[in-house]
Computed example of a mutant assay.
Amino acid sequence: MTTTVRGAQEGTGAPYALSHLDALESEAVHIIREVAGEFERPVILFSGGKDSIVMLHLALKAFTPAPVPFALLHVDTGHNFPEVLAFRDRVVAEHGLRLHVASVQEYIDAGTLRERPDGTRNPLQTLPLTERIQSERFDAVFGGGRRDEEKARAKERVFSLRDEFSQWDPRRQRPELWQLYNGRHAPGEHVRVFPLSNWTELDVWQYIAREHIDLPGIYFAHEREVFRRGGMWLTAGEWGGPKEGEPVERRLVRYRTVGDMSCTGAVDSDAATLDAVIAEVATARLTERGATRADDKLSEAAMEDRKREGYF
């Protein structure tokens, strides 16, 4: 005897099929719940950027009507966009979440870290991140990384084992056949977890539109004072820009990704609505990190080198 699962139109006899967004959502929710069942002290990396916002939205869905059973963690470089930090704090207050903040500035003030000549603090995030993971004994750390962003991230599994020094060894990656995830780890080790691994930038934006997810306005076209460096439009700030010979212009721009102001570039855009952003992303030839992140252009293996040291 066979049973036919009905589609949206009762009586048609058509089999029910998930849309690609439903399938991605289902996979991500499964991963989040798997972590809740396997680990004792998970935490979600939350910066107020679009990927971490989507990840938190999925976690809220995974456990509703119960609260999210995870804390949030943000590594604050001290050069973050103010509007993104304001959004982060609003979301935390709105959902009654616990937020841990690891401050790069505190490490610089203590003399543990030293400012780089180029002013960027993105590479300085690794030590505050890994030490906070160790001090809080987090054994699973959710990240919003996606395989389409950058080739080093494309090599990483959904469950990515890190050793007692938070370092990543590609040779120790485990098979993940049939969506079976191995969270086994020794004392001192932890697992980085990427529920959005199989999503693309376009998937993220389509999901944001479908779910009516609120975002910082920085992701939509707005007028901003920027200057040109390394082929990108950067926002002027105390971090060290602009230099002599780098005139500031007021342009209509938006950000495809957000991070440290010193290495995150804006793109010329008039996309002020979700539909316009989706249309723009659908025709983009470069990934968001490839187009707007200066720290990924330092070398061919820049991201992989940082990941080996403990970065996300």
Score class of each variant (00 low, 15 high):
1 M>P: 10
2 T>I: 06
2 T>R: 06
4 T>M: 11
8 A>N: 08
8 A>S: 08
11 G>Y: 02
14 A>H: 06
19 S>V: 03
24 L>I: 14
33 R>K: 06
35 V>I: 01
36 A>C: 00
37 G>S: 15
37 G>H: 14
44 I>G: 01
47 S>K: 13
49 G>A: 10
53 I>L: 04
54 V>N: 10
59 A>M: 09
60 L>H: 00
62 A>L: 04
63 F>G: 03
63 F>C: 05
63 F>E: 02
74 H>S: 03
83 E>R: 09
87 F>G: 03
91 V>W: 13
95 H>Q: 01
102 A>V: 15
103 S>R: 09
108 I>V: 03
109 D>V: 03
112 T>H: 05
115 E>H: 06
121 R>N: 11
124 L>C: 01
125 Q>L: 10
140 A>L: 04
143 G>K: 08
154 A>C: 05
168 W>R: 14
173 Q>P: 05
176 E>Q: 12
182 N>M: 09
183 G>A: 09
186 A>E: 15
191 V>K: 05
199 W>Q: 06
202 L>N: 08
203 D>L: 03
204 V>D: 00
207 Y>Q: 02
218 I>K: 05
221 A>T: 12
222 H>R: 13
226 V>W: 09
231 G>D: 04
235 T>C: 01
237 G>V: 07
257 T>S: 04
268 D>N: 11
268 D>S: 12
270 D>V: 13
280 E>I: 04
284 A>Y: 02
307 K>D: 15
308 R>H: 07
312 F>V: 07
